[in-house]
């Protein structure tokens, strides 16, 4: 089992993902954005950061990096892909996931730990039962998920909403629980096949009790189990 973590110019959470995956006992390696060989990797992570400085729009330049054509092929082969924060924004720009991420309401960068509720979804990359509340940090300026009404209905009908922002007891506040204003409190979604998963929160930051918690581990363990099952 080997995770591949893509480094775009301006990525800055790649070492955190590597550390998290190693901490959980799995192997991981870096993939330079100019490389086009993804053989030897069982799952791909697009990490957080500011690829190409987030200039023009978050992810708008990064989607044209040479590696992205291979990432699209990897997705088409049904293999696991996770985009975290900037990685989610890149997946959206690359049309591997529907919708877009706007600036946070309040127009402020937000770095804080939030509550997330795991939803009943077709994405298998979350190792907890639906309804579980997880405490994971967010860290972004553009995490305000938006899509048109038709897409939202399709996401719901097809169970593609993987994570929603919630209150600490798992409920949703009357005016919504998304600190960034995200539509329908959406924190993470997957594609129609369920193998491409994008989320704004940073699970890699909470796999080690010394640095704030362990709720992020379940975002990596499910993929590892899945890969092991496919291999056996």
């Amino acid at each position: 089992m080997r995770f591949g973590v893509v480094i775009f110019p301006g990525s800055n959470c790649e070492q955190d993902v590597i550390h998290a995956v190693n901490h959980l006992g799995h192997e991981a390696g870096y993939i330079w954005h100019g490389d086009t060989d993804l053989s030897g990797f069982d799952a791909i992570v697009l990490p957080g950061g500011f690829a190409y400085g987030d200039y023009i729009r978050c992810g708008a330049v990064a989607r044209f990096s040479p590696v992205m054509a291979e990432v699209v092929r990897f997705a088409e082969a049904g293999k696991p892909i996770i985009g975290i924060c900037n990685g989610f924004q890149i997946l959206a720009e690359a049309h591997l996931l529907p919708g877009a991420l706007l600036r946070n309401v309040g127009l402020k960068f937000l770095c804080k730990t939030v509550s997330l509720r795991a939803e009943e979804s077709i994405c298998d990359w979350l190792d907890v039962p639906a309804g579980t509340v997880l405490r994971v940090p967010i860290n972004h300026n553009e995490g305000n998920y938006i899509c048109d009404a038709e897409t939202l209905e399709r996401l719901k009908a097809n169970s593609q909403i993987v994570l929603r922002y919630c209150e600490s007891d798992g409920s949703t506040a009357p005016g919504g629980s998304a600190p960034n204003g995200a539509l329908d409190d959406i924190a993470g979604i997957c594609n129609e096949r369920g193998n491409v998963f994008g989320l704004m929160p940073h699970p890699e930051r909470v796999v080690d009790p010394l640095s704030g918690g362990t709720d992020g581990a379940v975002f990596f363990t499910a993929i590892a189990k899945h890969v092991a099952e496919v291999a056996s």
Binding site: C111, E204, R205, S211, G212
Partner: peptide, 13 residues
């Protein structure tokens, strides 16, 4: 400090 990324590099204890 909520406007600052204070956790990246996962060494902030």
């Amino acid at each position: 400090w909520e406007q600052y990324d204070h956790q990246v590099m996962v060494n902030t204890v």
